[in-house]
Design a protein around this nucleic acid. Structure first.
Lengths: 146, 146
DNA sequence: TCCTGTTCGTTAGCTGAGCTAATGATTTAG
DNA sequence: CTAAATCATTAGCTCAGCTAACGAACAGGA
């Protein structure tokens, strides 16, 4: 068992933190051509795969406050990627759904965005890809608990 | 060997992308008390550990354009964490170095910033921590190649 | 020596993410 | 049927990232 001051654990946390910063900075530039940056692409993905959902649900899924999501959705709507449907059940809420164009653009942008990453992953051995997948699984659960 | 259209690899790239986004969003909030957000803390760390260096070198190390780094350094300087020393060798450049306060604040902020993360890591089994470290190593090399 | 081109950092000006606080509209509860 | 809660938006702030343009300083050749 580790003690509370285990430096290895802090170092681990630190490199995780650092990796996230640098990875995002890289990916941000990798996708200049697409008009979809990381937050927008991520939100659109949730709408595409998560079916119709309200803005509040989307904000919760993306771990963001509603005002932040309002603006992201507005940008997506302005580009014709997302449709805001009023909800007859509860007229305070919206039903967000992806348009056909939204679906297409999402898949294209996603492919572009992760292309450089996938290219690097391709160079890894089968065993290394295994280890990467394994580590990501743990990181995912870590984030969920945060 | 994987083929170029291996969906597993794209899925891997995608979850890496997604993990980075969500992790940073979480950590951003975790550290409200500290006046040091992720980019500033990261830059200060490089200055503390990387000894005196110029703004251009720092920008390169952080994978950011000079104007971006100019503003980050300005904020650090305004808080008395970093000193800009003129360089006699080449008066176009600066020598950036951390102040005593800068070193102290960096260590404190770093500890705070990764605390929630380290707490979660603490809950992982020894084996899981191993897998996390392993995955991060691969992610690190991936980023370097990007 | 001086002129020219290059390099370094800064400034100006833009887009966009994230937040809190306050507001209007609607629904729910009492 | 009024009061409280909930949902999305607006306003207003800090900050990160970029490109373009610029002044200051260096380096090299006529």
């Amino acid at each position: 068992m580790s003690t509370a001051s285990d430096p290895a654990r802090e170092e681990l946390a630190d490199s995780l933190h650092s990796a996230a910063i640098h990875l995002l900075r890289k990916l941000r530039r990798a996708d200049v051509r697409s008009r979809l940056n990381a937050p927008r692409l991520s939100a659109l993905s949730v709408i595409v795969f998560g079916g119709p959902l309200t803005l509040g649900q989307l904000a919760a899924a993306e771990q963001v406050r509603p005002p932040t999501m309002t603006r992201i959705v507005h940008a997506l709507e302005a580009r014709g990627l997302v449709k805001k449907n009023s909800n007859a059940e509860d007229r305070r809420t919206l039903h967000l759904s992806a348009t056909t164009k939204g679906r297409r653009v999402m898949h294209e942008a996603r492919a572009r965005r992760i292309h450089s990453l996938a290219t690097q992953i391709e160079k890894l051995s089968r065993r290394e890809q295994e280890r990467l997948r394994d580590g990501l699984e743990i990181i995912g659960s870590l984030i969920r608990e945060l």
